[in-house]
Design a binder for these strands. Structure first.
Lengths: 160, 160
DNA sequence: GGATGACTTGATATAGTATAACATTTGCAC
DNA sequence: GTGCAAATGTTATACTATATCAAGTCATCC
């Protein structure tokens, strides 16, 4: 057991569980969890913190992987697209998903001091403040960005 | 009148109002709305869309302003820090605040097709989906990031 | 088994975003 | 008018991300 995020947990189980969840999901959906993708996910799970793409790149490079930026970005794109990892826009960093397999809208609590990131869920039904308070996080600034289709583009799309 | 965001409004009034609000706020708080800061805010209000720092830089440069990146980033830092503009993390872009003066938690609705950005408010009390639906925006993906202090860092801070 | 096509990877180059560092100037308080 | 804090000018560089095209891998179909 060690401190991760803002709480305690069995980290070995968390890494194993994360890999297992990804393997199962890929199996089920016919996705290919190739060597590079697998290794990047392992790194994110092991480190259990938000990492920059070039941090990951450095680790791959140390291990003798072909290590050019596109290698990492492709792996990250795959992991993010399939819900195994998330991008923390505020930090330009990536983190393994804490709830792989579940469909969810992640909410990230980012410490401005140490940049530790905790992933929580479903803020939009309850209030975000309540979620944070439970774990002792003091929110000072929230970033809420919703992406989708604006009315104009929806009209254009259906017209075509 | 012209289409801005996803609705209609009196754009001239909106620019004037934005500048007025910033001037008043600076006056009240002893902040200096210097030439460069003022011009960047004017540009953001006039364009009324999310702009990259280098887009703004290009416009300043065309006008004969000293136009190195730090000039723009400093102005943007000032405007964001004091609530006259916001950064759209998802787009690495900046946009004039639609409600200057009010203390608020902005919520941005970003069209993935045209990248038009609408600023709405206070999603955490109601549900984000309701806010979006009212203006015809279809949310496909939300980015919620809360920044603040984690329990560990709060302890350290009070200890010192 | 070989042809096919979709997907993935390798590799080089470059685009885009942001800050460090230090000298200089400006505005204001005393 | 001196001194200090804030703001600006300027150069260089760091950090983040993608375009492009060639080559390899894998499943499928015949």
């Amino acid at each position: 057991m060690q401190t991760v995020g803002f709480g305690q947990h069995d980290h070995a189980a968390c890494v194993g569980g994360g890999m297992k969840a990804a393997e199962d999901a890929c199996e089920a959906q016919g996705l290919r969890l190739t060597k590079g993708r697998r290794r990047v996910l392992e790194i994110l799970l092991q480190e259990h913190r938000a990492m920059g793409a070039y941090d990951i790149l450095g680790m791959l490079s140390d291990e003798g992987f072909a290590a050019q930026p596109p290698v990492v970005y492709r792996a990250l794109d795959f992991l993010v697209a399939n819900g195994f990892a998330h991008k923390i826009q505020k930090l330009n960093a990536y983190i393994a998903c804490a709830h792989p397999g579940d469909s969810h809208t992640p909410v990230f609590l980012i410490c401005r001091e140490c940049e530790t990131v905790a992933e929580t869920a479903a803020p939009l039904q309850s209030t975000l403040g309540e979620v944070a308070e439970k774990i002792g996080f003091k929110i000072e600034n929230t970033i809420v960005e919703a992406e989708g289709m604006c009315p104009t583009c929806r009209d254009t799309e259906t017209a075509v």
